[in-house]
């Protein structure tokens, strides 16, 4: 985990951003839930309203071992950019020495930052190879948890199974598990 300002608290903050429909809101919720399952303090703050319906969507997730004040973050320690507009919008905000995960299936340009770690993950291509392009968000999530090391793959998987268990689709759960694993091993 990163050290925050004073060393008083340790926390990692994520921005997941993409088109509406790419599942970034759900992805952030899954990470937040897993963090809570792990016993961390968490906040999950979505963009909401018209943005949800077809425009860009994003959410901010904070995981911390101290109580969280602001759920609003100036400089996230990790950005998952699922499309180009998301990279354009959030690239500059990422904290120094932070992480930018670029969905290189849909984003053609490299990042302009040289003070962050950049991960190019062809999330859509990997998801398509697993037979479900909708699972690109899970590929990205698998990759970012490995990169940050904040949550184990097993924990994310078990949280996902629990969150989706009310939807009667064993298929969906299986695909998402494979996608998380594929993202995790893509790095």
């Amino acid at each position: 985990m990163a050290t925050l300002w004073t060393g008083i608290s340790m926390e990692e903050s994520f921005v997941f951003a993409g088109f509406g429909g790419q599942g970034v809101i759900l992805t952030g919720k899954l990470l937040a839930q897993a963090g809570a399952d792990y016993g961390l303090q968490v906040t999950w703050l979505p963009s909401y309203g018209p943005e949800m319906r077809g425009g860009t969507a994003n959410c901010t997730v904070i995981l911390s071992n101290e109580p969280i004040g602001s759920p609003v973050v100036d400089n996230p320690t990790a950005l998952v950019a699922m499309n180009l507009p998301s990279l354009d919008r959030f690239e500059k905000t990422v904290a120094k020495a932070g992480t930018i995960l670029i969905n290189s299936s849909l984003v053609a340009r490299p990042t302009e930052r040289d003070d962050v770690r950049v991960l190019n993950v062809p999330a859509n291509d990997i998801a398509v190879s697993l037979g479900n392009s909708q699972a690109a968000n899970m590929v990205a999530l698998g990759a970012i948890i490995k990169a940050t090391g904040i949550i184990s793959l097993e924990l994310i998987k078990s949280t996902m199974v629990r969150m989706l268990s009310h939807k009667d689709s064993a298929n969906l759960i299986a695909v998402n598990q494979q996608a998380l694993e594929a993202g995790y091993s893509a790095l």
């Binding site: 925050l4 300002w5 004073t6 008083i8 969280i68 004040g69 602001s70 759920p71």
Partner: peptide, 13 residues
């Protein structure tokens, strides 16, 4: 107020 709680930590540092 909750955003300001973070600001208190930042300012004191």
């Amino acid at each position: 107020a909750r955003i300001a709680r973070t600001v208190v930590v930042m300012a004191r540092s």
